[in-house]
Design a binder for these strands. Structure first.
Lengths: 231, 231
DNA sequence: TAGATTGTTAATCGATTAACAATC
DNA sequence: TAGATTGTTAATCGATTAACAATC
């Protein structure tokens, strides 16, 4: 931050330094993948341009919010025209980092590990390089083309393949220990499916998928059915 | 709402009618399962009482927020003492509706359907009654004790077993059609794993688990590494 | 040019944090 | 009782919505 002189109101105001990025709120980041998805679908349907107003009614958010969200990252539209669908889609892709490949590994060869290995994340910029498990009988097998490896090879493999993301689908009791091991050998991001909050350094990114929490929110809304009043 | 007389400041203010529930914000509801989880763990560890201050440092949220959140639902604590862990845990359980059993079905017998069928949601108040699939060869088999059934039996089964929740793990192309079918025979809540926003009546509860969106948020945070500045 | 629609500032709304009187 | 800690009101902060000048 630098204090710069604002001639308009004759006081000093704080302004961002040139080149310093604005802090983007979590709420905005959460909405980006949804914009990306809708734009991707329009692109598939051959839609060329879209206004914030049209997108607004499709997505059930205000046009104002769409314009505000996008302008956190720059002006992607054109007055009187709107947004070019392909351009905007690709730009959001770059913001999200899905224009680059991110090497991933899955830790835990159970049901969820299996399901995630079969999921085609590759088309969105995420390539699953291996599934790690403790059971020696699984080693050498493949899950939809992805090799299963032993935990002994973890550190070597991560270094060799420059793994960025680890998907954690192991039992609660073993997750923290493995997370620490991963962090120690340079994994930047953990996608955590265990029902547990991980303790990792600040520079490591953790995204939790707490299914039980999600189901409980669903349950809350069933039980506390607010059909009364318009709130 | 009723206008009641406030003697203090000599004006009329709006007050909630007796029995009318306050609208609870989504942010609060989202935090409840986490409180429930931490309290459950303390309970297992034999902790009897906890203050908002202690819980605050354990959970990395402000004590103020904890007290505000809880007081949306009533006063569960005692001045000078704090909160009784078991009591608070059970009360939040009731608020979330996990004190009652919720009959569920899974639609889609693929990898995710399998993984979810194997997951023990039952201990948290959710009982999976059946897995539905289109493949006739699966019918009659069981997935960890849960029978696999044909889609033809869907409506009958839902009525007979009073199914409340349907877990949707089918291909994108078929989800909306099935969702509509479920809503038409009285299912109250959909737990949607398809990467698609469902169109259902307002009184039907939808909770989305958009894994790709979650992964993209992770990706955003890797790419836009904000190690600079303290924000 | 006139009409449309953005980018952006200002106004509003809601959520979080701070403060403190009530009370166990 | 004195100390602790809640419940709750007030202050602050941030996010959403509205409005409109800029401009294609």
């Amino acid at each position: 931050m630098t204090q710069i002189y604002n001639s308009e109101c004759m006081i000093f105001v704080e302004e961002k330094d040139f080149m310093e990025e604005r802090r983007i709120s979590k709420a905005v980041i959460k909405r980006l993948p949804r914009y990306y998805r809708y734009l991707g679908e329009m692109l598939n349907n051959g839609v060329e341009r879209i206004s914030s107003g049209e997108l607004s009614s499709k997505m059930q958010v205000t046009a104002s919010q769409i314009r505000q969200d996008l302008n956190n990252f720059g002006g992607f539209g054109q007055q009187g025209y709107g947004y070019n669908v392909k351009y905007l889609h690709d730009e959001i892709g770059k913001i999200l980092g899905v224009d680059k490949m991110h090497p991933m590994i899955i830790i835990g060869g159970g049901n969820f590990g299996h399901a995630l290995a079969n999921y085609d994340f590759a088309k969105r910029g995420f390539e699953t390089k291996a599934v790690f498990d403790v059971k020696p009988e699984l080693v050498g097998t493949k899950i939809s083309g992805i090799p299963v490896m032993l935990m002994d090879d973890l550190e070597d493999f991560i270094e060799r393949e420059k793994v960025e993301i680890a998907i954690l689908t192991l039992p609660k009791s073993r997750v923290q220990e493995v997370a620490t091991r991963l962090v120690n050998c340079g994994v930047k991001a953990l996608w955590n499916f265990a029902h547990l909050d991980l303790d990792v350094p600040d520079d490591v990114v953790v995204e939790n998928v707490h299914l039980v929490d999600s189901l409980m929110q669903l349950s809350y809304r069933i039980v506390n059915d607010d059909s009364n009043g318009m709130g």
